[in-house]
Each structure stands twice: as structure tokens, then as C-alpha cells.
Design a protein around this nucleic acid. Structure first.
Lengths: 202, 202
DNA sequence: CTTTTATGAATGAAGG
DNA sequence: CCTTCATTCATAAAAG
């Protein structure tokens, strides 16, 4: 497969002392991840299909057992495609949190650059990371309030909270879009449990 | 299996200009090849098995075709979960992506209608969806550049791109949309290039 | 090691 | 067109 040959030729980098190593860009990494993932999905589909056929008629003759058990595949299959993600260091987190609180919440493009610059002194980080962080922080902070607000207030339910329980409720804000699937499917949606399972499947 | 996060930590190399890139050792490369080839083999075997079953009896009910062609059907035979919002099928995505790249970026009212018409042959979709998609695609592609642009360039690490042609590649065909469980069947049949490469892996 | 939770990232849609 | 919000997905970290 040429792809790798090409890779080899194009991605040899002379690192410092004159040693050549293979280098992959994020894009290439992503491509690989996708390719593998495609196979993983195909395998799953085929396996399911086979099960269906086999069950439908007791053709237990051809077992897939050995295929499933291949050490290289089981469990490893999908993990391979795992993708890395940024994780803020505690220092970075403190700073971000501080900025978020004092901050007036809306870090514009310029501000983002500054923040990124400051944080990069404490570890790897990119502007995108900062951008996403604030985006998520804001969204989640807001969502938390929604769970507290609906309550008449007074009493006690202490703000703080994080009561993890109700947090994951299903806001069934199903505003159906034009393409929502047939009504029957909606039933599935009502039950968080099932939904969760389905997510696991894919 | 090998974790990428670890890879990232251990294999980040500071190449010349201070840019970090991911590096793979020959062993890791080899491991990847083996893993991919395992999938390739299993897929082939499963396909063969399925053909055998299918031929053996015309199971009208479960057509292989349906599974492969309907992007909405997921692997496990699980019904598609109703979505709150439109999600392009992989076929639609490919087309959109293609139009975006070749296209001159500004789909006017008329153009949008045409595109919508074409895409609706591959799944539910509305003009609004198309409109939003291009809007977002453009905006994000642009933002990404801004985040990257400030980069002084320097070592332009790696091969990647720079295909002299144009910068469409650069945009973000890069990391993108692939979060959704890839509809394997579609990619499989529609991207011969990838398929071919993978078969050569071993 | 497996399950659960927290959270980084992706993306359709809405606002301005 | 650009920015922001809402929702979802995947995964690192934490819990069991």
C-alpha cells in the first residue's frame, strides 16, 4: 500500500541530531482512525447479519467464534481509533476558572489569544481548546441553573449542588424537526435508559 | 491496546522550529498494519459467509442491499434513533463536501434548491439544512484558519497537503466531521481509494 | 478490570 | 456573514 510508502517519503523529518523518524499529522491520524473505524463498523454489521441468518435457521454450522476471539480484534478494535484530547493542567484550570468568574464571560477572539498565550506557559494548549472550554463552561453552567431555577427557590435546595442525579434528565424538548423519524421511534426516546443503550451500540 | 494518549505524550517530538508533531515508531506502525489487516480479513470472510447464506436461500425479507444502502440503518440492526436535528448521511456529506470544495462557496437561493433536490435522494433533508450546512462549513473553516494562521509557519511540518493546487484541502477536510459512527457501508463502497489502500496494508 | 461520570470537541440551528 | 447556543458524542478520569 502506497499510502504508507508515501508517508514514509514525505514524512521523514530530520529531528535535531540527524535522526529520521516517521511523523503523522493530525489529519493523517484522523484518516487512519476513520479507515479503521470503517472496518470496525462493517464487521459489526456483518456479524449482526450473520447472527440474524443463523438464528433464523439453525445453521449453526459456521461458527464465528474463532473470529470473535482473535486477541487483536476483541475489545481492541475500537480502542484503536481512540482520539486524543486536550486535558487542562490544574494550573490552567485555575486560571480559566478565575477568568470565567471575574471575566465577563465572553472571550472574544483577541481575548482568546491572550488567554491561550498565558496558559501555554503552563502546558500544551491551543486557542481552540480555550474557545471550547469557555463554550462548554458557559453552557453547562447555564444548564445547572435551569435545574435549580424551576424550583420555587426558597426552601433549601442549595444552589451548589451538582446533585448528580437530576442532572442528566431528559429534557424532552423534542421539537420535532422536519426529519424526525416516524412517530413510533419517538417512544424510544422517552426512555433515557434505552437511549443510553443505543448510544453504546454505536 | 496501545493508547493514543500515551502515544501523544511519549511521542511528541520537538521538531526544529518548536512545533510539536506526532511520531510513530516502526513497531507502532507495524502493529497498526496488523490490526487493520485483521479487520480486512475478517470483513472478507464475513462477506463470503453472508453470500453463501444469501445464495443458499433467497431471503427476501432481509436484503443485504438494504443494510448497505440505507445509511440510516445502523450496524446492530438497531433502528435509527429519532433525531432532534438533522444529521447528514454519509452520502449527503460527501456530496456537500464535494460541492463545498469545488464549489465557489456561495450557494445562492437557486443553487440551494438544486442541491437540496439532489441530496433528498439520499435521505431526508430540507433547504434550510443545506443553507445552514454551508453557512457553518464556511464559518468554521474560516475560524480554523484564523487559529492556525497566526502560526508563523516555519517548518510546515509534514507532507500534508500543500498540494500546489489550491488550498481547498487545507481548509478542513482535515479533521472534521466524522464523529458519527461512520456509516461504514457507504464509505466502503464509495471511497474505493480507502478500501484499496487498506487491502494492501498487509 | 469494568462501569460511571466529567468534560473536550463537533456540529446543526438561531440571533443579530 | 459572524457569533452564540444547545445537544450529542467520545473519551480521560474517577469510582467500584
Amino acid at each position: 500500500m502506497m499510502e504508507w510508502n508515501k508517508l514514509e517519503q514525505l514524512n521523514h523529518q530530520n529531528v535535531g541530531g540527524g535522526i529520521y523518524v516517521k511523523v503523522m499529522t493530525d489529519e493523517q491520524m484522523e484518516l487512519l482512525r476513520r479507515q479503521i473505524s470503517v472496518y470496525a463498523t462493517i464487521c459489526e454489521q456483518l456479524v449482526e447479519m450473520h447472527k440474524a441468518f443463523a438464528a433464523q435457521q439453525h445453521l449453526a454450522g459456521m461458527r464465528l467464534g474463532n473470529l470473535y476471539c482473535d486477541p487483536l480484534v476483541t475489545a481492541a478494535g475500537h480502542k484503536i481509533t481512540a482520539r486524543q484530547r486536550w486535558t487542562p493542567t490544574s494550573v490552567q484550570l485555575q486560571i480559566l476558572e478565575r477568568i470565567f468568574n471575574e471575566g465577563i464571560g465572553t472571550p472574544d477572539k483577541q481575548k482568546t489569544k491572550e488567554i491561550t498565550a498565558e496558559l501555554s506557559q503552563h502546558g500544551q494548549i491551543s486557542e481552540t481548546n480555550v474557545y471550547n472550554w469557555f463554550q462548554n463552561r458557559r453552557a453547562r453552567s447555564k444548564r445547572k441553573q435551569l435545574f435549580v431555577a424551576p424550583n420555587n427557590g426558597e426552601s433549601e435546595v442549595e444552589a451548589e449542588d451538582e446533585s448528580p442525579k437530576e442532572k442528566n434528565t431528559k429534557l424532552e424538548s423534542t421539537k420535532s424537526q422536519e426529519n424526525t423519524a416516524p412517530s413510533a421511534e419517538n417512544l424510544y426516546f422517552q426512555d433515557p435508559e434505552i437511549t443510553a443503550e443505543m448510544h453504546c451500540v454505536d
